[in-house]
Nucleic acid binder design. Structure first.
Lengths: 144, 144
DNA sequence: TCATAATCCTATAAAATCTATAGGATTTAG
DNA sequence: CTAAATCCTATAGATTTTATAGGATTATGA
């Protein structure tokens, strides 16, 4: 399961994608519209900014806005940033690898195989899910 | 990420699959061979037994053994039992569904789509991963 | 220049979950 | 009847998640 932090991040980014190139958006506005605790959201947006996914403008009239195009931000990178590994086991994680203590020998462990497949399928789907596509999908669903 | 509890369960079940139809196996033996804290493992095996995945024999000469054939136990059911939902969002979970608070309208939420795909692919892979296949895989890898 | 409005930043509180153990009750074999 | 094993409930300890507090910093514009 994704953490609330991660879900908040995704929702906030979709919101900002909808306001792409319309100037900085206040934390308060996003918090209110998406029902996210403001102070928590503040920390999340800061992290997204440090990761160069968002830009910010300080002071009066400031706020947050997308650094990259909505087509260039995908769910895989957001989740990795917020929650860490996407793989279900540390020993099959590409970005957060750790050896499993229970396995005596990783090379002969028959369990990893399935989790490698899950990892690759998951990365493929999430990597292809951009803010752009999510927005388009919302429009399609809203039109029904 | 799977919990340790879940990883322990999988390893214990693979161990018991290797001893299928060879009589009850002591908790202590599994704990020692797979480096799992004994008391923790005890609780896990009890849960697997209550779920009819394992059988047990009490008293002297007792222990645990598989209730079903290794070909009939798969990773999907083990993970669901130990960790709950396999889906990454509660609002796309088949067995542990909950509405997302952030979404105003689930029907028009563009985010769910990708997570439904991830869920289906994951269930397909884990559902097809039986103890039997894991054992066979270990033999193949060990022969290399 | 200065008041105001916003983000920035660190620390920490509160809650929930995960991991592990304690201790005795119960059952069975011999 | 004793020893060896699971059964069961409770709970302690550790870690992670969620959320907030409080002030520092920065930018705008009157």
């Amino acid at each position: 399961m994704l953490s609330k932090k991660c879900k908040y991040a995704i929702h906030a980014l979709v919101y900002l994608a909808e306001k792409y190139q319309q100037g900085p958006v206040h934390i308060s506005e996003i918090a209110q519209k998406r029902h996210i605790p403001k102070k928590f959201l503040e920390a999340i947006l800061l992290e997204l900014r440090n990761a160069k996914i968002l830009h910010s403008k300080k002071g009066k009239g400031g706020g947050y806005y997308l650094h990259q195009k909505p087509a260039d931000v995908n769910l895989m990178e957001i989740i990795r940033l917020m929650d860490g590994a996407i793989a279900l086991l540390p020993c099959v994680s590409l970005n957060y690898y750790e050896a499993c203590e229970e396995c005596r020998n990783e090379k002969t462990c028959g369990i990893r195989d399935a989790f490698i497949k899950v990892r690759d399928e998951t990365l493929s789907i999430l990597g292809g899910s951009t803010l752009d596509k999510i927005m388009k999908r919302e429009k399609v669903l809203a039109a029904k």
